[in-house]
């Protein structure tokens, strides 16, 4: 009977679908498990607080970790104000004019440009044309440009979610456009904006390729003190250790990955937490 056959197909697909989904989960578990097993024993205070070294057992991630912090802070400093500014402009001001339309297409194109191309941009502009050299500032500016489209898109979503009635109410009381934005729209969308920021910065923290191209170093035997210092970051350090044949360095790499993942997951978790909290709080 066709009917019976259809039902059997239906059931088979239900199982296939479940298996496919579980396959993704399964890979995730294997990935996390294998890294934990390989690296967790290497995680100790010495590892976190030591500079890199030719000897795996003496090496640590202090300079890479501090480089990551520098990059995180400076990237946020550049990308957040510019990202919010651009999003506010596109959503509240320039929405309908031609320039706005062009910028919009441009942003979705930028979001699809591979990260390594941003590295070439940073190398050409910040490192060579502006003569910064391969320093923290050049890396942070490069990553800021990289995450700018992500921030703009998520900020615009958050701005869009602010109901029109709130804007009308404020305009009706004689507020200027900027007053409406500053006193109503931005506060009402702050949660959504912040969530997007954090996700974008989490992405920046994990980026390797553009920083390699910009010239981040694999071996940095000092803790960077200014934006004009040379630097390494955690993913660079991991890449460097993975590329070495000795097994001890692989263990170091796994341990550094655990640190990187912890940071990434904390940021992502915080973003999800914020999003949920915000969605619950705001009922229009």
């Amino acid at each position: 009977m066709a009917n019976k056959r259809n039902r059997r197909i239906d059931k088979a697909f239900r199982i296939t679908g479940l298996l496919a989904t579980c396959f993704g989960v399964f890979v995730l578990i294997i990935l996390l498990g294998s890294i934990l097993i390989k690296g967790v024993t290497r995680l100790n205070f010495q590892f976190l607080s030591s500079l890199p070294s030719r000897f795996a057992a003496k090496a640590g991630i202090l300079s890479a970790l501090s480089g990551t912090l520098w990059i995180f802070g400076l990237t946020a400093l550049f990308a957040i104000p510019v990202g919010i500014g651009a999003a506010v402009y596109l959503e509240e001001y320039g929405k309908k004019n031609k320039l706005g339309g062009f910028i919009e297409i441009n942003i979705s194109n930028l979001a699809g440009v591979p990260s390594i191309i941003y590295g070439l941009l940073g190398l050409g502009i910040f490192v060579h044309a502006l003569k910064f050299g391969p320093v923290i500032l050049a890396g942070a500016l490069t990553l800021a440009l990289l995450i700018l489209p992500i921030i703009i898109v998520s900020t615009r979503e958050a701005l869009k979610a602010v109901p029109k009635t709130i804007r009308e109410a404020a305009y009706g009381l004689g507020a200027t456009k900027w007053q409406v934005i500053r006193t109503q729209v931005l506060p009402a969308s702050a949660g959504g904006i912040l969530t997007g920021m954090i996700l974008a910065l989490a992405r920046a923290i994990g980026e390797t390729a553009p920083l390699i191209v910009v010239g981040a170093l694999a071996y940095v035997p000092f803790v960077p003190k200014s934006p004009f210092d040379n630097f390494s970051v955690l993913p660079m350090q991991i890449f460097n250790w993975v590329s070495r044949p000795q097994k001890e360095f692989t263990v170091n790499a796994a341990a550094a990955i655990i640190v990187l993942l912890v940071i990434t997951f904390i940021l992502n978790g915080f973003a999800v937490f914020l999003r949920n909290k915000w969605q619950q709080k705001v009922k229009w």
């Binding site: 009635t165 009308e168 109410a169 404020a170 009706g172 009381l173 229009w284």
Partner: peptide
């Protein structure tokens, strides 16, 4: 400011 408005749906600020 001179000509105030009350809207169809109550729209208090959050």
């Amino acid at each position: 400011k001179e000509v105030g408005m009350v809207f169809q749906k109550p729209n208090p600020f959050p």
